[in-house]
Amino acid sequence: METETTMRSVTVTTRKKRSLTKDHMLAIGFLIPSILLVGVFVYGFIGWTGYVSLSNWNSLVPDFSFVGLKNYLYLFGDFRFQADLRNTLFFTIMFILAVIVVGQILAILLDQKIQQESLFRNIFFFPMALSFVVTGVVWQWLLNPSTGVNLFLAKLGLDSKWYTDTTIFPAIGWGKIEFGIPIAMIAVVIAAVWQMTGFSVAMYLAGLRGVPEEVREAARMDGANEFQVYWKIIMPILRPITVSVIIIMAHISLKIFDLIYAMTGPGANFVTDVPGVYMYETTFRGNYYANGAAIAVVMLLAVAIFIIPYLWSSRKGEA
């Protein structure tokens, strides 16, 4: 009681300046637990991983002797890892593009003041409620070339080998692998998009609802058609949402593991393998702890390439 009174009087008397600094201290104080936790559990462990990646720990017995970049050199000369880098790149691009496009289309459809909106919305949200471990298996069945959706597609004269397709398009020789889009990855993208679009639908739907009707009306008055209204007026307004969707989806796609592990595994000729799967297998099956750690470090560096431009631009926007 007493302290409250004094605190209050301090706030009141010194009004602006003191209270600001004091509150700033308090604000920073509230951040400290998070900073400490992130410091230890993210950066501390990244440091540990980095250290292991430079060590000789490639058996059950921990061996922390320093071997320099040996593990990295091994990885970059490894067919599987090269394939993984290619797969992650194209998976991420296709996945994020599809989530954005499909999410926007569904959101626009849902935003037409339709009946049963909540029913449709829940249908599109539903996959998010399921675990990747299970949906991976279901999609594996659905896209099985001999028993899955091909049975229906065949009637339309369409056919695809889905995730068993080992084609790389266009196959440009690069290191030990062929560089290009792994066709099999498209199947995985379909499953991942099915599962994750719900989130972008919700985000875009919220964004669309936030655009005032007057803005659209004004555009229409100027003679714009519906398509132009979306393209010229709404899309730019939705851009910040798109940025958030990209970040959240990028963190899912770059780390994707469960879905691929359950759905296709590494795939024939490693056409659907990703670093997450390789890391897990090489570390805990092969006991190549140092190699596994090196994969993690490369993944993190790849993420940095993605995220730093975003953060830089968002800082510019706010400064």
């Binding site: 998070s34 900073i35 992130v38 559990f41 993210v42 950066y43 462990f45 990244i46 540990w48 991983t49 970040i247 990028a250 963190h251 770059l254 780390k255 593991f257 670093p275 997450g276 890391m279 897990y280 570390t283 596994g292 750690a293 994969i295 993690a296 993944m299 993190l300 993420v303 940095a304 995220i307 953060l311």
Partner: peptide, 12 residues
Amino acid sequence: ILFGMFIPYQSI
């Protein structure tokens, strides 16, 4: 802090 989102959990 945000960067921590991207840490691959298998490695730690």
